[in-house]
Design a protein around this nucleic acid. Sequence first.
DNA 1: CTGGATCCCTATCGATACTG
DNA 2: CAGTATCGATAGGGATCCAG
Lengths: 130, 130
Amino acid sequence: MTTPAASPAHTAWHDTDEAECRHASKLLEVVGQRWSPSILLALGRGVERFGEITAMTTGLSARMLTLRLKQLEAAQLVERIVIPTTPVTIRYRLTAQGQDLMDALHSVAGYVQRWKVDEPETGATALPPA
Amino acid sequence: MTTPAASPAHTAWHDTDEAECRHASKLLEVVGQRWSPSILLALGRGVERFGEITAMTTGLSARMLTLRLKQLEAAQLVERIVIPTTPVTIRYRLTAQGQDLMDALHSVAGYVQRWKVDEPETGATALPPA
DNA sequence: CTGGATCCCTATCGATACTG
DNA sequence: CAGTATCGATAGGGATCCAG
């Protein structure tokens, strides 16, 4: 019942090593930090400039952006590129690793579509898709 | 254009609706909360009792577990089942929705494997898999 | 065993002001 | 434009005690 049909190439959680579960947990906690998803999404969509991210993300302050960017850099998900123009231009991009993560993560987009996740209001949605 | 008509496996982020991106972000922020991944993992592996989760998760207090469990219930990911034994037995289980999310999320297990994410120590890993 | 209620400390976050 | 520094408010989270 759990698997509809044809288990693909990916590993089920049951078969996942304890250590890897821990790493996955930590990773989710980093990625799940406030603003992180928005920032990663922006980068994934090609936005590369500090100011653009700030502008397009309502409520995000420069301070937080700097902070998150550093963390995401530390997590090897984002790289900071300094271009010696005048004044200096700085671009942020997903690393290959970061891109891969976004790739893995877009299956949650499918989840969101399937379950039409919404705010806990009215009666919410609680019916299986099919 | 928003409806790409029966996207095969999954939708790329570029093709993902803004609203859905927002929902995905919110979802990740909930799932990424401290302890949430560990709890979901435990539930996904079949652990159902409050005490068991507490015991197997180092550092997790009863308070936090109660809290997260409530949030996850509110997010429709977990259901609380009360069995009128003596004393009352309580089981927590992933809902179909929650199971589906874990399903979607196990692609991050693949990511973790591919990149061997580890603590920033020694020289760390920073090389592409292939 | 499950989980509510407090106390309290700390990390986090937002706003503002300032620099290269 | 791309950050850093500081401050004050708050919420998150741990420890402990208590209750159904």
